[in-house]
Structures are given as structure tokens and as C-alpha cells.
Design a protein around this nucleic acid. Structure first.
Lengths: 339, 339
DNA sequence: AATGCTGATGCACAGACGTGCACGAATGAG
DNA sequence: CTCATTCGTGCACGTCTGTGCATCAGCATT
């Protein structure tokens, strides 16, 4: 569970260096994983064969899972009855991953469970040489805490939009998310050290001509995957962007007047998906939505019914290709027949 | 564990038909699997959400595993130290899967554990539209008992060589192996109802012109995968072929005189892999080794050091592309530097 | 209607499992 | 050398999990 306890490179093990018997901690983990998951031995039996204690085997196994040595996948047979997934695919043209959650659990638990499953769903999709754009926000923060390791080469995590606001540079918050992604996949991390919104559109124009910024923008153009949540304006609980000091009162009034329903990576849109004529987007540092739509795989993580109106806008705009959301929201989405 | 208890098609469940709540046993299994393996809930928590008992959840999960709903794979990072796998690949040009087994366990347990791991290794390799050739013998029998289900379409299991001998038609034995493969992958099963060896080569020639036989031979020519063990002559424990009434004394003497070291699917070969001039092969119903070598994926399962000399011959003949064997045998193989 | 059969269920128990804790071996700094 | 730190280990405890058993609902047969 505790990623930081997992040795980064080879065995820094104290014990193994002298034992000579060619055994490293990670090779023991591999043997244990094979015996446990492939041969169905008990941990006790494995402990005897490895001449160690059962608890060590337990720890070896959890390390094997955390480091991606063991991969567990749940296949969803599509050819089954008209499931929520199928219905969403038919209606919105996105691949849905519905997280089963009974309606009795709290919102924060829903978020947590969606995040865990999102992390496990994303894992297998990240390959070597990938360029993964990552947004920030409470959803992504939760997801980032549950990523498990996977070995990739020459992959890059790039920040989708600036995180600074009038109070902080936002670095501590957004970069922590990015860092976790980078660590999980052994990827380079490219931060985007700009505020979420400029005060003046001209500043953005100027900055967008700076080479340090251009480097990030070019990376974004070559993204193979993008991971983001959605913001929703009319939600009871306003999401991070709407309450964190990023927007002033005038901005918020403008959003309402323009019938904005939500945002992805601080780029706003209306319920019909339109966004080009929104003034505020000219000051936002998020990726142009036309650019975003060119990314081959665009994964949207949504937890909680408060985000449905924003999600509908994102779907209307054709932003996600894959959608990970909790069951209750999925039902809502399907039942919002009107749209 | 008990494959026969797993419902074949949809839910024949008695309870669900009346419950109306859109829930089938298999959809419950999917939800349970997602919650258990993707969200890390305990079975108790899952039981509460599904409004059932914990033991039912336990059974749902084991069903989900058996039916291939959940797949667990152990990735072997090749870039590691000079492992046995790497050494075998380098020396013999085959992909090795070494089954970790300490030296203290009995031969029969080794066989069992190799068989379990072989079954799990083979599973992911069988796809739709595959034509899988399967031999018979004690090794394959053990493997067949541990296959877990996987949904495929239009795949075929074809028997590699006849199983009849002077005492029985061999059908009960070989067909049971085939049947298990067929059931696991939802595949058609094509038996090969001929003896393992004809008494006279002319009979084989005649039979090989029969359309019923030609149909099988044509299937064999289109195999996409072949799965077999090896027989070994000089082993302490003679394998099935050498003791089951398939060969008479004269045959056995001839094998010794010709310096035969083993067989694959009742086609014999010497230590150097040569086989064409062996008289007995003209009466064997196994696939010509040149034909076998044309199959894209050829998986050889070996358990026990007694089979090493036979295995060496098979490797010299270039028969397997993939080799699943126990660790002790793997060490022996690597240490037999002389060859 | 009565009967037997199949298969899912819950209970209860034994065994398997995860984890906080204290200990000791290796490592590095002073 | 000595001390502090780090990290892997085994123990012990409480929880979690697999499974034999008895039960019961549905279905088919007599």
C-alpha cells in the first residue's frame, strides 16, 4: 500500500548483498508471486520454500502488486445485456467504465473508490514512449494517490494547465499530483509553471511566445493520452476551480451569464459543448479543446452526481474517449434522456 | 476450483428469474470482482452492498476467476539478471517459463504445480479462431485439469496423435484431456480415432488416404498452436507411452538400438534431433515433426528431471517455441553444457 | 399431489491473511 | 570507533477468507 516503502531500483537490501545465493528481494517477490498467483500455494507453503516467514511473504506479495509485477484485470464481457456501459457507449460514443457503488455510501467514499478503480484502469493503458497530459483537481488528486507502479521507458507526464492563482503558485498542489504520476510510471514530469488564468489575455499571448512555454505546448500537441476530471458550475459543492481563488466575482457572474456548465482543465464550455466564443477561455492556460480532441485517448474521471451537468457539456463537446464514473452518476447520465 | 460447478451459459439461476432486479449471478460476479480486485473492498463490505452473505461473495469471486472474468498475470521483467529464462532463451532459442519449485517436494507435487502454472500460462495465449493441437500423456492430463475458462469464438482443439493401443481404444483417456480443453475455451473438439501406432506402415498409408483422417490432418496443418509434453526413454519412471502397452518388446529394443532418447506426440527422435530415418515413426500417428515445426506457437510442458534427455532431443529438433518446466529441470538443462 | 433432483444460500469453523510492534543487522556521518 | 538511521525480519493479534454441511426454492418426473 505504501508506495514510498518500495525500493526504487534494484535491491538496496541489506541482507541480500552478503547472502550470495543470487537472491534479491525482487526476485523473491517474483517467485512468491508465481507460487501464490500461478500455483495457488498458501503463503505458509511459500514461506517454507523461500526459508522465510509468512509475514515476509505477505509483504513480498504486496510489493509485487504495487510494483506491477502482478497485474490483475477484470474483463467486462461487452456482449452481455444492455448494461450501463453499453448504453453510454451507444448514446455518447465513449467507452464507459462504471464503478459499482451502492447508494448508501458517502460522497467521499465514492470519490475514493472511483479513484482507486480509475488508477487501476489507467495503469494498463500507459505504455512506453507515452506522453500523458494530466490535469489537476480534487478528482485527479485522489486518482494520483492510488496509482500502482508500472515500468515504462521514455514516457512523459505533462501538466495540462497552469495551477497558480492569486494566493499561491499552486505548485505544491498540482506538482504533487504530477509527481505521483511520474513516479508510478517512471516518467519524466513536465510542469507548466503559469497561473490557471491570466488577468489579461495579452499576457497569455505574450507568454505563449516564450520558448519555455512553447516547449510545454509542443509536448501537449504530441500527447498520446490525456487524463482529466470535470468541473461543474451548478454543483452544490463547487469544485476546486470555482472556490479556490482562481476566479473573481466578475468572472463567476460572467460564467453564469454565458450559461457555462463546466470546464475541463480550466477551459469552459456550455451545455451544448460550445466554447470558442467564451471570453474567459482566452485567459485560461488550459489546452484548446480542439487540440485536446486530437489526443488519441482522453480519459475523463467523474465522481458524484453534482458533476453531471458539467459532464454532459464535456460529452457534448466530444472531449473524452473514455469515461470512468460511479454507478449513480452513470444512471443519471443515461436517464437524462432529454439531451 | 470445481469447474463442473460453474454454470455454462447464462444464469440458469433459480433465484434470479423471479427477482426482477436486473441482476444475474454473473453480473453480480462482475460487480463483486470489480469491488474486490479494483476497489480493494473486503468480502464483507461487498456482501453488504450486494445484500447477500459473505460466503456467497467468496463463491462469486472464485467463479469470476474460474470463468476468466478476472485475469491475474505475473510479468517477468526480462531485463533482469542472467536468469534461467534468459539463459535458456540464449542457448536454445525458446521462450522459457520456469516454475519455481524447491527441491524438497515430491515428484507428483512438482508435476501438479507445473501443470497449474502451465494451464495459467497457456490461457492467455489461446485466442478466437485458434486451432490448438493437443497431445496426450500424464503431463497433458495434469495440465488439462487446471485450465480455467476463457471465452473464445470458433476455436478448435485437435488431437495430435492417436491414443489407441493393444488393450484399449485409448478414447476414455485421451478424449477426457481434449474435452477439458474444449470446455475451458468453448472450442470444438476434434478427436483422432486411430491407434497410437499401427502394426504395419501400410495400414497408416491406407488410412491417411481416408477422408475422415484427412480432415484431421488438414486441421493439423492449419494449427496455430500445439501443446505437448515429452517422453523420455532412459527415464527411471517410463512415461505413459513406454509402459502402457503401446509398444512391444521388439519395438523397445529397436528404440534402444537406434539411440532414441524421447518422443513428442509419439514421434521419436535421437539426442541430435534426427528422426526421419526411424522406422517406428512410419507407423506412428503423430504429426510429422517437419509439420509440427511449422506451427507458429509450440508449447512444451516438462516436469521432472527424468525427462531431460528427451527434452534435449526435442530442443535439438527445434520442436518447442515455448517451454514450461520446473526449476530443477531448468537448472539441469542449463548445466548440461556439453551438448 | 408427491417425489426426487439440482443448485444457490447462510452458518460456522478452521485456516489464511495483513499489520503494528520491537528487534537486530547493515550503512553512513561525525 | 560510536552513534543514529534505515530497512528487513519474525511475532502476535485480530480480521478476513474458503469450504463442509444442512437447508430450501424451483423444476421435472411419476
Amino acid at each position: 500500500m505504501n508506495l514510498s516503502s518500495v525500493g526504487e531500483g534494484e535491491d538496496s537490501g541489506a541482507r541480500y548483498s552478503t547472502e550470495g545465493g543470487q537472491r534479491s528481494r525482487s526476485s523473491d517477490a517474483l517467485r512468491a508471486a508465481q507460487m501464490y498467483y500461478l500455483q495457488d500455494l498458501t503463503m505458509n507453503a511459500i514461506a517454507r520454500e523461500l526459508r522465510t516467514s509468512r509475514s515476509t511473504v505477505s509483504r513480498l506479495l504486496s510489493m509485487a502488486r504495487d510494483t506491477g509485477l502482478v497485474e490483475i484485470q477484470v474483463n467486462n464481457p461487452r456482449h452481455r445485456a444492455p448494461s450501463l456501459e453499453n448504453e453510454i457507449r451507444r448514446r455518447f460514443g465513449v467507452e464507459a467504465h462504471v464503478v459499482p457503488v451502492s447508494e448508501m455510501v458517502s460522497d467521499s467514499e465514492v470519490l475514493d473508490r472511483v479513484a482507486i478503480q480509475a488508477a487501476r484502469t489507467i495503469g494498463p493503458l500507459v505504455d512506453s514512449d507515452a506522453i500523458v497530459g494530466v490535469a489537476w483537481g480534487s478528482t485527479l488528486s485522489a486518482v494520483s494517490q492510488h496509482l500502482s507502479k508500472k515500468v515504462t521507458h521514455d514516457s512523459t507526464i505533462v501538466q495540462l494547465n497552469g495551477a497558480g492563482n492569486t494566493q499561491t503558485t499552486g505548485i505544491a498542489y498540482a506538482s504533487e499530483i504530477l509527481r505521483r504520476f511520474g513516479q508510478a510510471y517512471g516518467a519524466r514530469v513536465e510542469q507548466f509553471p503559469v497561473p490557471a488564468f491570466f488577468d489579461h489575455a495579452e499576457t497569455k499571448t505574450a507568454m505563449w511566445a516564450e520558448r519555455s512555454v512553447i516547449r510545454i505546448l509542443e509536448l501537449q500537441q504530441r500527447m498520446t493520452m490525456a487524463i482529466f476530471g470535470v468541473g461543474s458550475t451548478n454543483s452544490g459543492i463547487p469544485s476546486h476551480v470555482y472556490s479556490g481563488g482562481y476566479l473573481d466575482d466578475a468572472d463567476l457572474r460572467a460564467l453564469t451569464a454565458e450559461r457555462v456548465v463546466g470546464d475541463v482543465a480550466t477551459m469552459f464550455f456550455r451545455a451544448d459543448g460550445s466554447h470558442r466564443d467564451l471570453r474567459i477561455n482566452q485567459r485560461s492556460t488550459g489546452p484548446d479543446l480542439d487540440l485536446l480532441r486530437q489526443v488519441p485517448r482522453r480519459i475523463c474521471v467523474v465522481s458524484g452526481e453534482s458533476k453531471i451537468s458539467g459532464l454532459c457539456g464535456a460529452l457534448a463537446a466530444g472531449l473524452p474517449t473514455d469515461l470512468i464514473l460511479d454507478e449513480a452518476s452513470a444512471r443519471w447520465l443515461v436517464q437524462s434522456e432529454g439531451l
